[in-house]
Design a protein around this nucleic acid. Structure first.
Lengths: 228, 228
DNA sequence: CTGCGCAACATTGTATACAGTCCCGCCAGG
DNA sequence: CCTGGCGGGACTGTATACAATGTTGCGCAG
């Protein structure tokens, strides 16, 4: 069976990965991040294989990779489960993320170009005029940061931030917050934009302000405050 | 076939992973880090399967995980190759590693216990009396940092540093340096030890001093110097 | 009614089989 | 001598088959 022969809902004509494994990898990651598979849920290989009309092999290999990315957790001989983050784990991830986001912003600021700035500005504008669904808001948020990660120019930094935040997005996909809070969070990106655009200030302060919006426990970052 | 039935050189009676996949994962990682498989070398699934007396399936799954860890690189329909780092990539990794090592040291210092300190001290003593092989020196180096990573108390920080440095060790496994240089590098750990033990100072400075010992290009870290 | 044991089923872990692609060398033509 | 096509072998990607473990639900004893 080839990728093109695959049936069902899994078509993304934009870029077709040439192996089933890569296709499944993308598809599963997208589904988990979108909240279609909820944290703690078991991912049955045979069922997935039937759904996608392929054998279990590419699915197992894709799951192995997702495991390494932290999106799923393997319980030996019991199956793969969507990773369920405890409050403590969320905080640990965020405290690490803070350090890396700050570094990304420093680097991005140093290498900023008008093109990237325009792109960021566009995203922030969309955020401020945002009226849509929760999932779209999360996508905008993710996109904003992704642009900065890439602009930082260090692929390893980019990859690390991606693999740290993806489980967070999966975790928050279910979370219900009021539109007001969502707007509040989104609007804070303007401050970050100003920083990477060259405004004076310490990135830590802006990011702390941003991430503490219900994401983190500020108490945990005393070491950062000292370092800044 | 079970793990116990496996033949050949692959026995590690300390902890036997219950699945072949996990066993192969450890074994391959160890071999790559030890320099037995050199960067750029192709890892033939069928050959490995014959060598380990198992089928290709557990090997492919282990390789999928190693790929995600950055130790091997997949070229579609051509095979898995031990990741070969360019000079630029080594620098990118090290520039990121610096930020994380500094964070780990701040956290470790804040949570330091006499037990951990004693362990670190023991390793540094071993370093200063070291007379053995290159591989042992690298192991000591790795162990010193690993203790600090764990003492920092953030599993994600620990995991990230591990997956960043492991390819570096594989990369450096071949490198030949004089005993003098090796001693010089090793001895610098005393300064790091002093910092995590509570001595005043900025971790960045000690780490910069440490990592620049032939590992990194100091020019790249202006942003850190500013932040520090 | 409740708790335990056991058997049938479901699912994972691994092996084997097969299909398509890549690579390398050989040979013909320029 | 060099170049380009082409055939055979080797290898990866995927499917199917089998083994072993985990799970579930039912019967039975207390």
């Amino acid at each position: 069976m080839t990728v093109k022969e695959m049936t069902g809902e899994a078509r993304e004509p934009i870029t077709v990965p040439s192996t089933l494994r890569n296709h499944v990898l993308r598809e599963l990651r997208a589904r988990i991040v979108a909240g279609r598979y909820k944290p703690g849920e078991r991912l049955n290989e045979s069922r997935l294989a039937r759904e996608l009309n392929i054998s279990r092999i590419p699915i197992r290999e894709a799951l192995s990779q997702l495991q390494e990315q932290g999106l799923v957790t393997n319980h030996e001989r019991r199956g793969m489960f969507v990773t369920k983050l405890s409050d403590e784990e969320v905080q640990q991830i965020n405290s690490l993320r803070m350090v890396l986001e700050a570094e990304a912003m420093r680097l991005a600021r140093a290498r900023m170009t008008p093109e990237v700035l325009a792109e960021l500005s566009k995203v922030v504008d969309q955020m401020e005029n945002w009226e849509g669904e929760l999932i779209d808001a999360a996508a905008l948020d993710r996109r904003f940061h992704a642009i900065i990660w890439e602009a930082a120019g260090n692929p390893y930094l980019e990859r690390t931030l991606q693999s740290l935040t993806t489980p967070l997005f999966a975790h928050k996909a279910l979370e219900h917050v009021s539109n007001e809070i969502r707007r509040w969070r989104l609007n804070h990106h303007r401050a970050l934009l100003n920083y990477v655009a060259g405004a004076p200030g310490d990135p830590m302060l802006a990011i702390l302000e941003h991430l503490r919006m219900g994401y983190t426990d500020p108490e945990r970052y005393s070491s950062l405050a000292v370092g800044a």
